[in-house]
Design a protein around this nucleic acid. Structure first.
Lengths: 165, 165
DNA sequence: TTCAATCTATACAAAAAAGTATAAATAATG
DNA sequence: CATTATTTATACTTTTTTGTATAGATTGAA
């Protein structure tokens, strides 16, 4: 259970682009220097980001990449989806109301339920963090999203009692 | 960002062992038939589980594997650790009190903070689900841990406001 | 128009993960 | 003790992921 290389590098590239002057954009060459990756590899990753409509490209002389939308409206969940797909596809075993159940009727179901819960939890976090939240600016120096998970962590522990053996 | 094959198969094998009669255990051959994996592959996975002291082996005639502890005390987080390691190593960027911060002072820090939050969230879930919770028995049929994540999901959304721009 | 800077697409190579094969060690049982 | 059923360890092959190379298409500017 690992974060793939593409996830990390693709996200870094997107954050770099979000920090650039939108009138100029960033070229593959510039991104390559900024992140210490080969130009060929950057090109491969920008292709995925572009095909997912997260960035727009301008070809030819003075070309480069810019975000296709404001950084505030691009969420990390979308970036992960574009780069590496989901941890686990949770299209079933999920109740209509959005409340998850860990069903132990069969091993298939219990394991699938577990992955679904994990997937949902990860997705819930990543779909609430935007590229703007991760972009470094002078204004933002020192900013913390300190309560993002704080309460969250406590609740899971308490809810353990809900188990009916 | 994917669940590795070893994570899934290793967990399944452990659940199978937990369901077996402790006086008999389960052999590699039996596990292979139960899960539809080659004996060689099962052997590779049981080795990891054994080295992590999650199962005990008995060699020779009538040998096999049993859990080294009660299923109630083996948590999925340990199993994942034994099989594939962590999503991300979160040994730093974590405050003493256990409250996580998404620090945006530098890109390195902001991305690392994000992975740390994700890692902690996943770990919090997996360290509260035991092998017993996933094991199928007649008694347990129909059991649900329905509130495991329920509240959890709502809190993250609300806490988004805590951001100080 | 011509040139250089740039993105685009596809094919290739290297590294890591997944899965297999095999020989040796161990233990129960007749 | 010999045989058979079993785990153990290591080396090997296949597949997937990661990363590179290269040739072509597009654009701006002299």
């Amino acid at each position: 259970m690992k974060i793939a290389a593409q996830d990390e590098y693709g996200l870094r590239i997107l954050i770099q682009i979000s920090g650039a002057d939108p009138a100029e954009g960033l070229s593959i060459q510039q991104l390559s220097e900024l992140e210490g990756l080969s130009t060929a590899y950057v090109a491969k990753l920008t292709r995925k980001l572009r095909m997912a409509q997260l960035i727009d490209s301008r070809r030819g002389h003075k070309g480069g990449y810019i975000l296709s939308r404001p950084a505030e409206s691009i969420f990390v969940s979308e970036v992960m989806e574009a780069l590496g797909g989901n941890l686990y596809d949770d299209s079933f075993c999920k109740s209509h109301s959005g409340i998850l159940k860990l069903c132990t009727n069969s091993m298939d179901c219990s394991i699938r339920s577990l992955w679904t819960i994990v997937q949902q939890s990860v997705n819930q976090i990543l779909s609430n963090v935007s590229i703007a939240d991760l972009t470094v600016t002078e204004k933002k120096t020192g900013t913390m999203l300190s309560t993002l998970l704080e309460q969250n962590l406590i609740n899971i522990i308490d809810s353990k009692e809900a188990e009916e053996v």
